[in-house]
Design a protein around this nucleic acid. Structure first.
Lengths: 213, 213, 213, 213
DNA sequence: AGCTAATCGAGACGGTACGTCACGTCTTTAG
DNA sequence: CTAAAGACGTGACGTACCGTCTCGATTAGCT
């Protein structure tokens, strides 16, 4: 995918270096933060020449994005193995017990846990920040990481519409933002504390509205 | 106010330089983007020594934050002069016509316009991005710029509660996020298009809920 | 003497500051060396504003030159008081016992001692070095410090000529260099060790020549 | 050879850059003087990154010392080629015609010419001045440039001793200073004019002594 | 199985910006 | 009017990384 002018031969690429670069990049971002993570630092930590990085990635952000995607895939695969799910698919589905509110609260609580996992925090914040300012990378970040997750909410909401638990004229892609975006913003911008009661409240407000019924 | 180790004498500070630095910082961020905006660039554009910047601000982000706050204050003052309002207060209130939905839609449409104003876009994106990764600066950004605006929604929602248009058990600080955060996230993360119909929809969904009434 | 464009009024000059500046300059040169001695450092150590230095001296080298002259004058005055000599005259004469070789050896041994005095070493090296590269200052250094001393040798040699101990066709100003310059060069350029036996040897060689008699 | 803390690989060193740096350094010292010659100036004039200088030399003085040594080597090699002498040896010998006085006068006259050559004057003054104040560099300057030349005088004087033209108890290393150091001091410290008659006089005085024979 | 061409680790290179230091000028307040 | 204090524009310092480049030494795919 990412290829520079003289198209290196991907078949001869060193898998060992790629892994070492991912590990070094994630470790450095976690340890010293994104801005102090440098290509030279990644290279020396990975025991790799700088050119090996420049050959395969156009920028620091791209290295980190791929490293993070790789990490997510691994995590998903492990989770899948634990659940007996099919490997290769990042995520499966939001549970559908028939109780929409309960199902959403459950998933959002899991999201809260993930957002607090320090292994994910540093790189995902770094990528999110880069995406705010670098639209091209931002879109890739969203397409590869965010949207796949949001699609699960769309699916669950559609199923709820079929079950008559959500108004049929509602656009699920917008609807999900009522409870997902507030959490996202509090996390991204430190505009407020994040907790289970908070996400539970969001689900309540979103489902039943602010106006008296 | 902002004083570093050896406390420069703020009374001797050059107002001329401060203004020139603000102008240069905002112009450069708009022209070449935040990462390519350098302290040296700001200094040379402002016709100022680098040390004059380092004397008064600890980092590029802080320069830009103050420059942006200053810009906002100026804009507010102008708006106030136009309206005959009191200077010094950034904003006054969300209109209260009695029709909560209409009032919120109006304000959100104005926010959409502001988010699209190129003079505001570059610096506010840059600051938001920096705030994602730099919690300390993020909190200042939120406290000085975001919260004052959100407080207006709290006020309007409380008034709506008194009028019986919003359930009394609702927490307004959380409620406002149902329509504000989705817009913020779409803008920040490029997760979707921004438009009047979108914000109108958000208000509808938030007020009347996703579940059938 | 040294006056800049708008001729400050020397009658109102602060004697206290002048002394403090001399002391600070000499102390700093001795402690950190000439290149790391800065005008700002002298000013702050002397408890004096920078402008007070710039008002009265054109450069760091000039400050040091005057400071050093002042120091020499003081030392000379003390020595004179000790000897019952007349104050105000920097030096008096080389002894004239009738034995030219002995007299010269004695004075050169005293010079060796002076060259090794750490209080004189740092500033005089600094001034000499500056003078090598800065002809104008070099000439002043020579005129004010070196030549007065050399004149004493001229006098003693002339007296020796009258006594028939030195050939009458010899130019004393050049003759003195035969024993003074080797010592000077060894000290300045570290081209060899300096000691009593060395200067004694120089006197012998110079008086009686290298060729067999 | 010269290696700092993290020892750059000298085999990968760019010869082109080294030469360009020497040329730029010598040119700048000649044009604007040593104190106004800056590392940045040398780098930009040589079309070289600053780091390339800092990688190989610890200071401005060291750059200039090597540049000057290189220049001397080149000059010597050219002279050798012209004379059919052996390359690699900077100088060969003081002529030995049997007339010591004449031989010394000849060489000293050549030295006078060299001291007046503007191409040599600026850098050698700068290095000498630096050496006065920086003992470590001074010693290197002397060892690499001065001593090799002085050794030639030692050789010639020893040969004169064998021929009976110089007293056998004379130390040649000290003897040579009688005529070399006065010239050096006049040049270094501007203590007097330099000319052929002056050096001729020095040789006469030194050989036959100041005292009547 | 050996050849050969690409990738690899390494790091020197020309650059740009960093944050600091000192320069010499200028302005302010106190005596 | 001088002095202490120190902010200012300027410019060099020495360092850190950038992205490009060149150098043997593997190393993997083709003959």
């Amino acid at each position: 995918m990412a290829q520079n002018q003289t198209a290196p031969d991907a078949t001869r690429r060193s898998e060992r270096s790629r892994r070492a670069i991912y590990d070094a990049a994630l470790a450095l971002v976690a340890e010293v933060g994104y801005p102090k993570t440098t290509i030279e630092g990644i290279a020396s930590r990975a025991g790799v020449g700088k050119q090996t990085i420049y050959r395969w990635w156009p920028s620091k952000a791209d290295v980190l994005l791929e490293a993070f995607l790789d990490l997510s895939d691994q995590a998903a695969e492990e989770a899948a193995r634990g659940q007996g799910g099919t490997a290769g698919q990042r995520q499966y589905a939001i549970p559908d017990t028939g109780d929409l509110a309960a199902d959403l609260k459950l998933v959002l609580r899991a999201t809260v846990d993930e957002l607090r996992d320090p292994a994910f925090e540093a790189p995902s914040r770094a990528l999110a920040a880069e995406g705010v300012v670098n639209e091209e990378l931002g879109r890739r970040f969203v397409a590869r990481l965010l949207e796949p997750q949001l699609r699960l909410y769309v699916d669950r909401l559609r199923s709820a519409q079929e079950a008559g638990d959500v108004r049929p004229d509602i656009d699920p892609r917008i609807a999900l933002e009522l409870f997902v975006s507030p959490l996202a913003q509090r996390w991204l911008q430190h505009t407020g504390p994040i907790g289970y009661d908070y996400t539970d409240t969001l689900v309540e407000y979103a489902l039943y509205g602010l106006a008296p019924r």
